[in-house]
Design a protein around this nucleic acid. Structure first.
Length: 774
DNA sequence: GCGCAGCCCATTTTT
DNA sequence: TGGGCTGCGC
């Protein structure tokens, strides 16, 4: 393959004669700070741009692209710019367009890792044993396929779930492994030691289905690059400049892919923030960014540390928090802003109360003129959302949950797409299975089992098996006729698809298949919205020139632009909040076992704890003006009341930037007084600042600390001491009483934290201040 | 096919 | 606690 430089491409890019040397005084450099400017003009050789939260990294990145183009270093088609999300890709495209005007059509290598890898793989599909029309499977298909593989292997599907094996296989692919290169010892614990065998079967099945899953897109690329040096060389010389966004989130496969491509030009600029690496559990390797200077010798490292987003208190709190991590490159965010509120930390009696107070704050902000969409509630896990949703509904506060079930994951959209997939690629058994009898067309379990058995016995796809079966008498006449009709339909659509625009063919398929009628006649309450969604599908299809393009879009751009009205409070997980910013941010549920998540730590120990801490850092740095952290002393989790400890992250916040508004005595001597009330009036507590003054804090700390221990002197203490260590008031064996759990006996004491065997609710960990002598 | 009872489980989820 | 899945009975 050759890559002639088209003149029109140059013209579109607005390029004059190519000139060496940049134009450091060009207008687009105006308004950049020194570091940003350095990151823009350091075009040659490897560059690591360590860009802290809110430091204008996208601006630097897009200006860098503009600079490369404007200085004639490369044509748009010679720049590879990869992101993780479509949203980021879109934003980058728009912003580069804003800088250079036209010429963006030539920038065809700006996209997500997966979309770019898919383009490359389609060009060389046969080298990976696929046809260029291969289908891209989504996560759901992967699980279903994995399930089939487990069943075929005769393993117990309950013991080894499809999801489990799919996750294991995905993990290997994230590391760039194939069945041949996966170390044998890794499979030992999975599926009776047969995991690699399952991996191999899974890959064989994919080939038969003419399909690739997400991981394959990258792994096939890598395999092809390694096996065919001429192809690799071709891309190496094409991509003169490479830019990578969110480098801290790259997995091994992506790293290998980048390294192969960058070997020749070495002009690779990776942008990221090790402190915001929160996808380790999905295969992201923070080490990639930590190791950058070793991987790319002679690399220039540029730190963007000037923050344009947040107040000094927010930055101070975030910086102190993240400094507890060991595995980091180290950055210090600063701002020249002076003004701003302290970060507020509030300890609250229980989870419901927390939701009430947060929503009360939101209403108060709203009535003082703050727009609802300038506020966000960020939680660790989605189960925490319910309390807030209930409260929002009760108060009539409009809110928006980010990240719920997505358009392309809904049943009806997936069904519709399965029809399209089958028409395009009749080997797509997953699509076949999904819709062969949906709507019911008398293709019951018997007939389909017959199809499967025949397909497996002859090593052919379900469609092919079906074709063969209708000419034999292996199936009962009813099934045979149904199958024949089904095949005829699919064949007819496939013929029509050659001549008709995708929108028309989509409509024909959905109508003639009876799928639309299926929902029209459905008594389900959801039928109307399903029908609306099907219309949406057709609408979406009509925006594409070919069905192939639409299907790729669906697989790779699993998002759907839905109207996003203003005037709604945002409610989402911390993960979903990455990359966003809000004037006011609420961070509830900062309690041990919830945040940091117990499960994460159980699974991954210290590394997971650091990742949880990065998540906390991401949360705090989303706030522009006002950050309000809270924790509850009691919380219902899975229907059980639990006594909660404040998160260790609370203790890591610096006192200088934090104002504590704990409800009086939650973790101090007044706990019993407090506990004797049946409820707390949120409004009263909010104005109750009596307990929030240094004297009270000192008194509280003094009461809590063991006799003889030095007092905490105000101003000297470096952390917030809501959780000051102290001696337990009760000895092991003591009878105690707790407001929620009743009577019990102390079985273990560790500082103020006691384990109590309650007579009726079993063993619990509680803080001694909640207990009275029983 | 459907409806219901019982059972199990329960982070995060860019593509 | 509650949702999602399964298996059973019609």
């Amino acid at each position: 393959m050759s890559h002639p430089l088209s003149i029109s491409e140059r013209a579109r890019a607005g390029l004059g004669a190519r000139s060496e040397g940049g134009a450091p005084d060009a207008a687009y450099l105006d308004g950049l700070n020194d570091e940003q400017r350095a990151a823009v003009v350091a075009t040659e050789g490897p560059v690591l741009m360590l860009a802290g939260a809110g430091t204008g990294k996208t601006r630097a990145l897009t200006t860098r692209i503009a600079h490369i183009l404007a200085s004639g270093r490369a044509y748009p088609s010679q720049i590879l710019a990869v992101t993780f999300t479509n949203k980021a890709a879109r934003e980058m495209r728009e912003r580069v367009r804003g800088l250079i005007g036209d010429g963006m059509e030539g920038m065809r290598w700006l996209g997500t890792f997966h979309s770019i890898a898919a383009i490359i793989l389609r060009r060389h599909a046969e080298l990976a044993g696929l046809k260029s029309t291969f289908t891209i499977l989504d996560a759901d298909d992967q699980v279903r396929l994995a399930k089939q593989v487990i069943n075929d292997a005769g393993l117990d599907e309950k013991r080894w779930t499809g999801r489990h094996i799919a996750t294991v296989i995905d993990g290997w692919k994230n590391r760039g492994l194939t069945p041949d290169s996966t170390p044998g010892n890794e499979a030992y614990f999975f599926a009776e030691g047969r995991a690699i065998e399952l991996f191999r079967t899974y890959q064989d099945r994919l080939k038969t289905l003419n399909a690739a899953d997400f991981g394959d897109l990258l792994v096939h690329n890598i395999t092809i690059f390694q096996k065919y040096p001429d192809i690799l060389a071709d891309y190496q010389s094409r991509f003169r400049y490479m830019l990578v966004d969110e480098y801290q989130d790259t997995n091994v496969a992506q790293y290998l892919w980048l390294r192969l491509l960058a070997q020749k030009s070495k002009n690779i600029c990776c942008v990221g923030d090790d402190d915001q690496s929160i996808y380790g559990w999905r295969g992201a390797e923070v080490e990639n960014i930590l190791r950058f200077e070793n991987d790319f010798p002679g690399a220039t490292v540029i730190r963007l540390e000037r923050n344009y987003r947040s107040t000094p208190a927010i930055l101070g709190a975030a910086s102190a928090l993240i400094s507890a991590n060991k595995a980091r490159l180290g950055k210090t965010l600063w701002t020249d802003r002076q003004e701003g509120e302290m970060v507020r930390v509030r300890g609250i009696w229980d989870g419901d109360e927390e939701a009430r107070l947060v929503c009360g704050d939101i209403e108060a902000e709203q009535s003082s003129g703050r727009a609802l969409n300038h506020m966000a509630v960020l939680v660790r896990a989605s189960f925490q959302m319910r309390a807030f949703e209930e409260r929002f509904n009760a108060l009539g506060i409009p809110y928006r949950v980010v990240g719920g079930p997505r358009f392309y994951e809904r049943e009806e959209t997936r069904d519709a797409i399965a029809y399209f997939r089958l028409v395009r690629s009749q080997d797509d058994d997953l699509a076949f299975d999904r819709i062969a009898n949906k709507p019911a067309r008398k293709l019951g379990g018997q007939s389909l089992q017959g199809v499967h058995a025949h397909a497996r016995a002859n090593g052919v796809s379900n469609m092919t098996a079906a074709r063969e079966l209708i000419t034999s008498d292996e199936l009962p006449a009813v099934g045979r006729n149904a199958l024949r009709k089904f095949i005829e339909m699919v064949d007819r659509w496939a013929r029509e698809a050659k001549d008709l625009p995708p929108r028309d063919i989509a409509e024909i398929i959905l109508e003639e298949s009876g799928y639309v009628d299926y929902w029209r006649h459905s008594k389900s309450a959801k039928a109307d919205s399903k029908l609306d969604n099907l219309k949406e599908v057709i609408q979406a299809v009509s925006e594409f020139d070919t069905m192939e393009a639409y299907l790729d879009h669906v697989a790779l751009v699993a998002e759907h632009n839905e109207a996003s009205p203003d005037g709604e409070v945002w409610l989402m997980t911390l993960h979903a909040a990455k990359g966003l910013e809000f004037p006011v941010v609420f961070l509830p549920g900062w309690e041990e076992e919830i945040f940091p998540s117990k499960r994460a730590i159980d699974e991954n120990g210290e590394a997971a704890l650091e990742e949880e801490r990065r998540l906390a850092y991401v949360g705090v740095t989303r706030a522009m003006e006002d950050c309000r952290i809270s924790f509850a002393a009691n919380r219902q989790v899975y229907g059980q009341w639990r006594s909660q400890m404040p998160s260790r992250f609370i203790d890591e916040l610096p006192e200088d930037f934090v104002q504590v508004d704990s409800q009086p005595g939650l973790y101090g001597a007044a706990a019993r007084d407090l506990a004797s009330h049946s409820r707390f009036d949120g409004a009263a507590l909010e104005t109750d600042t009596y307990y929030d003054n240094p004297g009270w804090r000192r008194a509280r700390a003094a009461k809590a600390r063991p006799a003889g221990a030095p007092p905490i002197i105000d101003g000297r203490a470096t952390t917030v001491s809501v959780n000051a260590p102290g001696a337990a008031k009760f000895d092991v064996g003591a009878r105690v009483f707790h407001q929620k759990f009743g009577y019990g006996r102390v079985t273990e004491a560790e500082g103020q934290k006691l384990t109590v065997e309650f007579d009726h609710s079993g063993p619990k960990r509680v803080v001694d201040t909640f207990l009275e002598a029983g």
